[in-house]
Computed example of a mutant assay.
Amino acid sequence: MKVLLNPKDNENLKALYNRAFKRAEEIYIATAFLTDWSFSQKPKKDCKKFVALVGTNFGLTRKAACQSLLDWLPRNLRGNVFAFPSNENTFHPKVLIWKERKECFALIGSSNMTSAALSENYEINSFSSIKQEEYERIVQWFNGCIKLSDPISKSWIARYEESKIGGKRVKGEITLDQIDLNIKLPWEKDFKDLLNEREYKQELFKEKKAKILHLLRSNATGSMSNAAFWTEFTQLWHRRWEEEDCFRFQGSGVERICTKNINWREATTALIDIIENEKKMSLLDLDELVAKKIDLLAKRKNPARKAWLSEMLCQFFPKKYPVLNDPVKTWIKKNEWSLDRGGTEGQKYIDLARRLRSVVRQNSNYVKDLAGIDTLIWRICPPKKKKSKKL
């Protein structure tokens, strides 16, 4: 183990960060607060994963620093920058871990991501190689924190309120206050009934889940044709929306796009791969898999990748993935939540999923998952009425 004693060793500390950015294929960073990001060395082109966790206690983290970090990252790596909310327990780590070829390294100490901590402050940090088992333990700690965190984006930065630092203080004034990024849903009289109805549909889906999985696997493996799959699937799914045995979340718009003539095998293969890996992967890795599957279907111009696939993901994993529909898109615009990180369809969908998970956390007193959020969004931002054939 090597010990770095700042300010004497501050250049060595910066050199370790630059080494990680230059060589690592995976990087995880956690800092209690972020006030400066001015590294010139960027992650290498084949860096597969960059994860950053930033604390927000007392509003000490600076907006400009968050934006600098996003701007510094290559577009394909911007999706895993998170803010740990101040209404949870205090977030106080200062750690950098990375994989370099087949070796794992850790830099842990007292230095936050500030210009002072990396220069004139008196800090102590330690650097060493670590075993793969220890690296994985730390990654699991990151994954646990990510589940409680909000994705940092331009929209998040716009809502975030910094604390006041320095200047004259008025007697009794509290300048270091806890910051609460409110994403509260308005409560309306019929919300309880809507949530009960949605939960009833979810129970219906559970009853038919085994049959649906059988159809998905039969089509994915090639033992059932695309046309036969769609015919049998619609017998389970395409009912009149108002009928008691209908478990679908969406209206009739899906079948205007999805027909028996599209390549269902591509879509069912993607969905089965996600389903079979869900319990094996961390949420972070599962998000990346979902994004890749959606992008692959987008590349092949498969129309099942949006409304149909997102509904299936929400049905199978209601706490993780949302339905992508017109009311959700309208609600995003209404809240000025531009999906501004990444750029691909898959990355934007995961960005949406992470933001809606935050909404669930902040409204957990009456809504339990993204399926519930979806039905409330339909009530708040109802879809425009379109003439359609009855199911």
Rank of each mutant, 00 (worst) to 15 (best):
K2I: 09
N6F: 07
P7I: 06
P7T: 03
K8S: 09
D9I: 06
L13N: 13
K14C: 07
L16E: 04
Y17N: 00
Y28H: 13
T35H: 05
S38Y: 02
Q41G: 04
F58V: 01
T61I: 09
K63S: 03
W72N: 02
R78S: 03
V81G: 08
S86P: 10
F91L: 11
P93G: 02
K94R: 12
W98H: 12
K99V: 00
C104W: 13
M113K: 08
Q132K: 15
F142E: 05
F142Y: 00
G144Y: 05
S149P: 08
I152K: 13
S153H: 12
S153F: 13
I157V: 05
A158F: 12
R159T: 02
G167I: 13
E173I: 00
D177I: 14
D177Y: 11
D180V: 14
K184Q: 03
F191M: 15
K192A: 00
L195W: 07
L195M: 13
N196D: 11
E203T: 11
I212H: 09
L215Q: 09
L215R: 10
L216S: 06
A227I: 11
W230G: 02
T231F: 11
F233G: 03
T234P: 00
H238S: 01
R240A: 08
W241V: 03
E244C: 09
S252N: 14
G253S: 12
I274H: 05
L283C: 08
L284C: 03
L286V: 07
L289P: 04
L296A: 15
A298T: 14
K299R: 14
R300Q: 10
R300K: 15
N302H: 13
K306F: 08
S310M: 14
L313H: 04
P318V: 05
K319P: 00
V328D: 03
W331D: 02
I332Y: 05
E336T: 04
E336V: 06
L352T: 01
L356P: 07
Q362A: 02
Q362T: 04
N363R: 15
K368S: 08
L370D: 00
G372R: 13
L376A: 02
W378Q: 01
P382M: 09
P382H: 01
K387F: 03
K390G: 04
L391V: 14
